[in-house]
Design a protein around this nucleic acid. Structure first.
Length: 351
DNA sequence: AAATCGGGGAT
DNA sequence: ATCCCAGATTT
């Protein structure tokens, strides 16, 4: 791209953004804290999914100081259902570091931001440019797609080298004045016009006159991405253990998948009705009634849980069982249960 | 470089 | 079913 085209790129993109920017909660009085929280929530997560979480989070935890001292229960509850729960833990850790080492204020420098947990190359660039106006790129999936089309670049955008190459090009195009708007505009264009999976809306695109992919008629073949590997399948049997108005839940380990989230007791594999009875004996549970429940499945990025379940009404609270007995209300108020268990959680609430 | 980590909406 | 999302971190 020559200098003229880069000027055109920047000018037309900003002009388009001025007329088409969506009204989003984090764009209202965008403090560094609000930009930070929104950008972390938006990692691999769609705008519409984030909106309600962002507004609730800001009500319940409106400053860095609040965040540095929030309880884990409350933090996970605010994040419940959003996914990638390490994001929430990293937010709190970063808030504590910001209090200790940065005087309670977010740094503006990109490299400095990137030293904080949960803030990588993209998020550091986004905060630095959007909240502080620094001239730094913020290259996310949208930007990679838009640029691979504009440049008709047929390299694999999942490669680190290609990402760095795009960052360099963006840096050259970035305007001195409105770097934050430019970065947001490029992402917005990717989300609204230069969409993935099928036909981008090139006739409505301000960059089509300089888009090489469009002019070569290969825009729908771009970007090039390596194929993902298949998901592994895991079978599980879920137990809804109910004693009077209490239900047994347990906390997952603090590492790995859904770490520190709460779940219903479960075992690997499908247990028959008979094997389920035996398992209850093994756990020394005084069973009153066993009811088989409908199967359910939950798809993660890299694995798939196929589940069956049993509703088990019991006569006495067993002592030595791992977990805690809670009411439905306590689950709603305090304990975070991931969406994977939604099917069985719903059954519980029908009881 | 590849694997891990969630959940949901669009196609 | 597959893809992808305002990615980061660990292996």
């Amino acid at each position: 791209m020559n200098v003229e085209e880069m000027k055109y790129f920047s000018n037309e993109l900003l002009k388009w953004y001025d007329q088409n920017a969506r009204i989003l909660p984090w764009r209202e009085h965008p403090s560094a804290y609000r930009v930070w929280i929104s950008e972390v929530m938006l990692q691999q997560t769609r705008v519409n999914a984030v909106k309600p979480y962002f507004e609730r989070f800001m009500k319940e935890c409106s400053t860095i100081q609040d965040l540095a001292h929030i309880s884990e229960d409350k933090l996970l509850k605010l994040w419940e259902g959003l996914g990638y729960y390490n994001r929430a833990k990293n937010l709190k850790r970063a808030a504590q570091i910001i209090e200790e080492k940065f005087g309670g204020r977010l740094p503006s420098d990109r490299k400095c931001l990137q030293s904080l947990p949960g803030i990588g190359p993209y998020t550091a660039g986004a905060i630095s440019s959007i909240a502080f106006g620094h001239k730094v790129p913020a290259v996310d999936g949208n930007v990679l797609r838009v640029m691979s089309r504009v440049l008709a670049n047929k390299e694999d955008i999942t490669c680190t080298a290609v990402k760095k190459e795009i960052e360099k090009i963006i840096y050259k195009i970035l305007p001195e004045k409105r770097a934050g708007d430019f970065n947001q505009a490029l992402m917005e264009l990717g989300a609204v016009i230069c969409v993935p999976n099928g036909a981008p809306k090139c006739t409505a695109c301000p960059l089509s006159p300089i888009c090489q992919g469009y002019q070569q008629g290969i825009e729908e073949k771009l970007p090039i991405k390596a194929k993902k590997k298949k998901r592994t399948i895991e079978k599980k049997t879920i137990f809804l253990l109910v004693y009077e108005e209490y239900i047994l839940i347990r906390q997952r380990p603090n590492k790995g998948l859904l770490s520190n989230m709460w779940e219903f007791p479960n075992v690997e594999g499908y247990l028959s009705n008979q094997k389920c009875k035996e398992k209850m004996q093994q756990w020394k549970i005084d069973v009153k009634q066993i009811l088989p429940l409908n199967s359910s499945k939950h798809i993660f990025t890299h694995k798939e849980w196929r589940m069956i379940g049993y509703l088990i009404i019991i006569n006495k609270k067993p002592k030595e069982l791992k977990g805690i007995w809670v009411t439905k209300q306590q689950i709603l108020d305090k304990y975070s249960i991931p969406s994977a268990f939604q099917h069985y959680l719903k059954i519980l609430f029908l009881q």
